[in-house]
Design a protein around this nucleic acid. Sequence first.
RNA 1: CGGGGCGUAGCGCAGCCUGGUAGCGUACCUGCCUUGGGAGCAGGGGGUCGUGGGUUCAAAUCCCGCCGCCCCGACCA
Length: 573
Amino acid sequence: MRYSEMFLPTGRETPSDAEVISHQLMLRAGMIRKLTSGIYSYLPLGYRVIKKVEQIVREEMDRAGAQEVFMPAVQPAEIWMESGRWKMYGKELLRFKDRNNREFCIGPTHEEVITEIVRNEIQTYRQLPKNLYQIQTKFRDEIRPRFGVMRCREFGMKDAYSFDVDERGAEISYGKMFEAYTRIFSRCGLQFRPVEADTGSIGGSFSHEFLVTADSGEDGMVYCTSCDYAANLEKAEIDRPEKYEVEESELLPVEEVYTPDVRTIEEVCQFLDVTARDVVKTLIFVADDSPIAVLIRGDVEVNEIKLRNYLGCDSLELATDDIVFEVTSSPKGFAGGIGIKSDIIADYSLINMKNFVMGANKENYHVKNCNMERDFAVKDFADVRMIEETDTCPRCDSPIKFARGIEVGHVFKLGTKYSKAMKATFLDKDGKDKYMIMGCYGIGIGRTAAACIEQNHDNDGIIWPLSIAPYHVIITPVNINDEKIATVAEKLYADLEKRGVEVILDDRDERAGVKFKDADLIGIPLRITLGSKKLSEGKVEVKFRKSKDVDEVALYNVEDFIVKTVHEGLGER
RNA sequence: CGGGGCGUAGCGCAGCCUGGUAGCGUACCUGCCUUGGGAGCAGGGGGUCGUGGGUUCAAAUCCCGCCGCCCCGACCA
């Protein structure tokens, strides 16, 4: 395409409302424009990238045996009521009524629709397994959209759904998707890591997130320095410690101490001259309307996801001040295990604690030398804390490390959650009706492109890998008014297009510097610079955006050189 | 939903405190000049100052309501 004819509004200035680098660069490179909060248009350059990502996704999904479908964005409330999610999904589900006052939503995901299709059309095990996918616009009314296209409300997503006759089959389907995802993100030129993840509101038995490593990522992950264990921070397990008796620390008598206005762990430590490891903090939660006390060592944090999973509750939140008063008979800051009016769950971190400090359930008092069993009863011990960098790998006990990442893909083994709720059954070999075992698999398309920019940019702009670059090559004639240069540029442009190379001819009557800046900003992997001096020697320059290397190539050879470089870069032939 | 900030030309911002002809940079148009990393000079076009009301002789500026956007938190495949 001729640059002069393109709709490519690039900008020199960084838009003030863009926080992360990918958002800034997508705006500056004329890839996207915001319509309203969390809702973006893709301009031609951006849409070309999206289509490249989609194409890679299609090829790898098809290779893995999945088939593409296209489902409605607008969905009737009935199927969501059937699955139980009309109530569960909350405000993120955008709901509305049609002219007949019937309720609808805009699909944030398509488990209900696909299950509705499959249950009607599949009767026997002979028709299974099946894996169906689509690439479609989703809508999730995010509480706070941010980071441009990375966390927005309307976004393009590939979602796939597998249906199997048994657990074993479902695991094979899951494995195929896992492999396909690995290929997809590799082909997109991303550095990523699959990590064990929580299943969240989608539900199901286990899942992996594919996180693109980036400091700007919203997800924390932990990985083992020795084995291949890696998990989302909110999922990362912590082993139950061995119980051991320490001889010299015999149980001391309980002692109530006056601690006026001493509420936080920090204040308690200072006031009583102890460390946070000697203190137990007591948090009151409300799980599905009933209060529960969680005891945990003072220096570590409660992992609410783990707690929610352990309790098996739908809603979980920290108790309000009045509920705290009801349960502990004291204002916030003095809660403890002794005499509390609720069940107590103790984190594993308490197992070896003796003679610890705790709130007294009495305003302005704490208790020293508390001990479990002797002083109060714990209903159960559980792993409900956030992992720390000083912990060790739950699999092999080696040191672990933390990193941040952008979630670009998520695979779930759903089991029968939806097939049961929506009665998706098939007739098995033994003549009995059985529920299909499902899996679901998502990839955020726009987010994948944004993640790629987070990982591949420099001060001058984006650095696309060839596989998803909007164009492979940009031809930059230093002076379009120089007839010789213009002629060569035109011929090279036509020849490269003929060979199937995606090429921009920067035929604008601009100074060279302007063209260079734009070429760098939009991140085209290869630039052919045509200047009069080199041209008179029969040479042109080929500049590599990523390495900044410049190759001098003979004019007669440049077409082949480019074709070869592009093919090699795309991993062809 | 709680807290904070912002809304003035396509973009980035000043002006507001202390009311009195709406400005700067950039981008855009015309001409000259220039042509290997966002040149220079001259001339020019473009703004209901988010919106509704109030105060005032007079409101971008002061007061009240509303809307939008951004940030922090809570929340979230």
